[in-house]
Design a protein around this nucleic acid. Structure first.
Lengths: 134, 134
DNA sequence: GCCATTAAATCCATTTTTCAGACTGAGTTG
DNA sequence: CAACTCAGTCTGAAAAATGGATTTAATGGC
């Protein structure tokens, strides 16, 4: 996990990935949402591309000029789980600001939570677990 | 989540909480494990105490002098979920280093994974979800 | 073709952090 | 009392973040 923390354990990187999960793909939109310095945003996006979490790709709507967009790779989409778990933690322990985003089932719209799942596919309470260090 | 990212979205903070989850409680032990600068470790621990994720408390084994130990509060223990999710992500996408720690059921020792759980308590694939922004 | 506009950066000077290592102080052991 | 351990604090150099101005590239309108 040290590697993972190195790669994405950073205030802005976390928020950038969240933006991307929300579906924001353009540089300026992210900059406006986050208020991050442009230089930092630029550096972080480059880094996220380098490590394969996002890709930068050109796109062009007819009648408009070519733009770039940053989209999550499958590796990036998988960060939804840790990020959602973190949101959930924040909601539980520091709720004080705006109502949160939720992760929902696409077909039904029913909200999901992040939790532990046993090998048999049953939910497990976190209090009934420990860490086993290899 | 911005708040959460602010509070714990930082390379060392993440790793410190992981240490604590592993059961390391003493300053020097953490410093040795992490290799973090002592001043940073000191500042981060103070911060984690301030935000109620850890507490510093004195303890004394008979025959030894009094020591301090840093232990996770329940708020801190709840970070096991996001942290484990992050580990899981790292294992899947950047496995290259030492075999990972696992979260296991305390009674059986069976490993668990972090995943999405529906309202009915059934596991949900992440690909079948989206974010709904409130 | 020329100008204004927009998106996506980069550059710059200033302030903050980080870093590694030396140092301090309290309590303990020899 | 000298040496040792733990838990920090202090220090000065190096690295990174910040907000703002500037640059580059591609348009669209005139």
């Amino acid at each position: 996990m040290a590697r993972a923390a190195d790669l994405i354990g950073d205030r802005w990187t976390l928020l950038i990935v969240r933006e991307a999960l929300y579906g924001v793909t353009r540089f300026d939109a992210m900059q406006a949402d986050l208020g991050a310095p442009r230089s930092v945003l630029s550096a972080r996006l480059k880094h996220l591309c380098d490590i394969g979490v996002m890709t930068k790709r050109p796109y062009k709507k007819p009648g408009e000029r070519q733009r770039h967009q940053y989209v999550l790779t499958s590796r990036g989409v998988d960060l939804a789980l840790p990020l959602t778990a973190l949101m959930q933690w924040g909601d539980k322990h520091l709720r004080d600001d705006a109502p949160p985003a939720q992760i929902v089932e696409r077909v039904s719209g029913a909200p999901c939570r992040v939790g532990l799942i046993s090998e048999q596919g049953a939910p497990v309470e976190i209090g009934k677990t420990t860490f086993k260090i290899a």
